[in-house]
Amino acid sequence: MAHLFSLPPISSRAGRVWHRNLVVFVRTWKVNFFPPLVDALLYLFAIGLGIGTYIKEVDGVPYINFIAPAILAISVMNSAFFECTYGSYVRMYYQKSFDAMIATPLSIEDVIAGELLWGATRSVLYVAIMLPVLVAFSVISLPLSLLALPLAFLGGLMFAAIAMCFTAITPGIDTLNYPMFLFITPMMLFSGTFFPLSLLPEAFQYIALALLPLTHIVAIMRMFTLPALSWIILLHLAWIAAVTIIFCVISINLMKKRLIV
C-alpha cells in the first residue's frame, strides 16, 4: 500500500514522451481537428435550439449560455479520459511503445508522466478549437473565458491521472468500457452540467461535490464564461489540485507495478 503513495522520481525526459505524442497528433491533425468543432456545433444545435426553445432561462441565464461552459468541461473530461485510457492502453499493450521507451534513458515514471501531460494537453487543444465556435455564437463572454485554457490543462491532468489508474489495473481493453459507463456517463449528467446542481436532492448535491470531479470543473468554467467569479473558486481549485496530485502519484506507481516485473 505504502508504495502507492511514494513520490515517483520524474525527470525532464517526460517531455520527450509528450513531444512524441504531439508529433503524432500534428501528423494526423485532420482527424483531430474536426471532432471538437462538430462536437460544439452538435451540442449548440441540439440542446440550444432544441431543448432551448422549451427552457428559456436557468437561474436568470439563457439556457444556451448555461450549458456552454458544461460543453467545455465535458470536453476537458472526455478528451483526457479517452486519451489516457484507450490511447495509453493501445500504446502500452498493442504498440509496446512503453517497452521501447524504457529501453532508453527514459524511466517508466518519465513515460507515464509524459502520457499524463499529453492527456492534459489534449484537453487544452480540444477546448482551444471549441472556444472560437462558442464565441461566434456569443454564448460565452470574453476575455475571462480564455481562462478555460489553463483550466482545461488542470482539469485534463486530473482526468488523465484518474484514467491512467484504470488503465493500470484493467485486464484488457474491453473492461475499459466500465469506467466509461459507470463513471464518465453519470458524471456527464449529474455534475451541474445540463441542469443546476441545486435541483438534486441535498444529499446528492454533497455527494456530487465530494466525489464527482466534473462538478468542480463545470463550476469554475461557468464562473469564467458567464462571467460570475466568486471566492468559492478557491475551494474548487483546492479540491482539483489535491485530487490531481494524489491520482498522478497513484497512477504512476500503479503503472510501474504493472510494467516493471
Binding site: 525526459r13 520527450r16 512524441r20 508529433v23 504498440q95 509496446k96 511503445s97 521501447a100 532508453t104
Partner: peptide
C-alpha cells in the same frame, strides 16, 4: 534489440529512428 518487435507504428522508418534518437537526447 528486443525479442518482440516494438517499432512505433505511428511513424515512418526514418521517423522511428529520429524519434528514438530524441529519447537519448
Amino acid at each position: 534489440v528486443p525479442q518482440e518487435t516494438n517499432l512505433d507504428p505511428d511513424f515512418t522508418c526514418f521517423g522511428n529512428l529520429f524519434t528514438y534518437s530524441g529519447y537519448f537526447d
